[in-house]
Design a protein around this nucleic acid. Structure first.
Length: 380
DNA sequence: TCTGGGGTCCTAGGACCC
DNA sequence: TCTGGGGTCCTAGGACCC
């Protein structure tokens, strides 16, 4: 049986979803039709763009650029602030419709999913089914998607990235040479800026060149594993299944970039306290405990440092995690050099609910737990 | 011009054990 | 006394994704 995989990708997701919300609330301007972007706090000069309308894209504005920079390119750019709760609602509706086309669905991110359609084409051609899925999403939810169709996840995802928005594309094995090989290496999944630079310096520009390159030559450029991965991807080889189960998170983290770089230890400690509260609240909500704490800091020049340590036993208590992270911070920061950002990460997670009570438990723990309980109540 | 936030996975060196 | 080699765990750093 021929394998058929769909990759469905919401076009400029945050921007489309915001547009739908504005229209729903009685607004008359559809921001998808004008140069517009979604960003974090638009007043904060440091916030970056997270989603770009098609007209703005045509003016050369790209995601992840600072708002201030985009405004210089396009002074009358419309900037709207993101609304994550609304995005989650839109995402749920989107996933629900997709699932009605095949239960074998893997959610890849808030606005993308894979469907294994191998057994679900009801005698119709895959393109026809994709068109009706696309239409149903638009008619029901009011936003457009791209659908990529291929024999595996990799090719389906590559296909959905072809011309946008509101399009269905196929990328079958016999189309690889024509549709994928002329593209630049950067267009290949898992090739980022650094890998692109390396490949270009060896004269490898297109996906086709990667596909036909000698494997041992590639190994010298990007290492053993990377070479195999690149070579397989460029040839359209991908045997990974569409995974319906979302694996448990392996880490939790929170980070904050300050409006202005900070060097006063009191300010830094306040920030550390805040990120600790946020990330600990999240692990408690998910009934997870962590036994490794990491801290990361970013300096004015964007260089970063990080340090981690193991706790004697897994915990979800803010005070203990904060205490550990304060110790780590003092080891990597001199207390003077200005910091741009601070972050706190938790790994080595355990999910067994059995409380490991120490015989000599610190009597303060009860007080800490009570404090966390109150904090969690205030957040809900 | 001046660069967010939240994740996953890989690599490489050192410690430690057998 | 000086030696091989493999496995595992920990840590720091980096690349990539959306």
């Amino acid at each position: 049986m021929k394998r058929v995989v769909f990759h469905i990708d919401v076009n400029s997701a945050f921007l489309s979803w915001t547009a739908v919300k504005i229209l729903k609330e009685g607004g008359t301007q559809d921001i998808r039709t004008i140069p517009s972007v979604v960003s974090g706090d638009p007043k904060d000069r440091r916030s970056v763009i997270t989603s770009v309308s098609v007209p703005a894209k045509k003016l050369g504005i790209k995601a992840a650029t600072p708002v201030s920079m985009a405004l210089r390119t396009c002074p009358n750019l419309v900037i709207v602030r993101g609304d994550f709760d609304w995005y989650r609602q839109c995402s749920r509706g989107f996933i629900e419709i997709c699932k009605s086309y095949s239960p074998v669905l893997e959610q890849f991110s808030i606005d993308e999913c894979f469907l294994d359609m191998s057994f679900r084409l009801y005698g119709k051609g895959p393109k026809e089914v994709a068109e009706s899925l696309k239409k149903q999403i638009f008619n029901t939810l009011g936003f457009t998607v791209n659908v990529g169709i291929g024999p595996n996840k990799l090719l389906a995802k590559m296909a959905s990235d072809f011309e946008k928005p509101d399009k269905v594309h196929t990328l079958w094995e016999e189309e690889i040479e024509e549709k994928m090989w002329p593209l630049g290496v950067r267009d290949l999944l898992w090739v980022g800026r650094k890998t692109e630079e390396k490949l270009l310096s060896y004269g490898l520009r297109t996906i086709g060149q990667l596909a036909t390159a000698d494997l041992s030559y590639l190994k010298r450029i990007v290492g053993e594993r990377g070479a195999q991965q690149l070579h397989d991807s460029a040839n359209g080889i991908d045997n990974s299944p569409v995974e319906t189960e979302h694996p448990d998170a392996k880490s939790y983290s929170a980070e904050r970039t300050f409006p202005k770089d900070l060097s006063d230890p009191k300010d830094i400690d306040r920030a550390l306290f805040k990120v600790a509260c946020i990330v600990c609240h999240r692990i408690r909500k998910d009934m997870v405990k962590a036994s490794t704490v990491s801290i990361f800091i970013k300096f004015t020049d964007f260089s970063t440092l990080q340090k981690q340590c193991s706790l004697p036993q897994p915990t979800d208590i803010t005070a203990l995690i904060l205490n550990a992270s304060r110790g780590l911070l003092s080891e990597i920061w001199d207390g003077e050099r200005p910091l741009r950002q601070i972050g706190l990460g938790l790994t080595k997670l355990s999910r067994d609910s059995a409380e490991q009570m120490s015989l000599f438990e610190d009597p303060k723990l009860d007080y800490y737990r009570k404090w966390d309980e109150d904090y969690d109540k205030k957040q809900s």
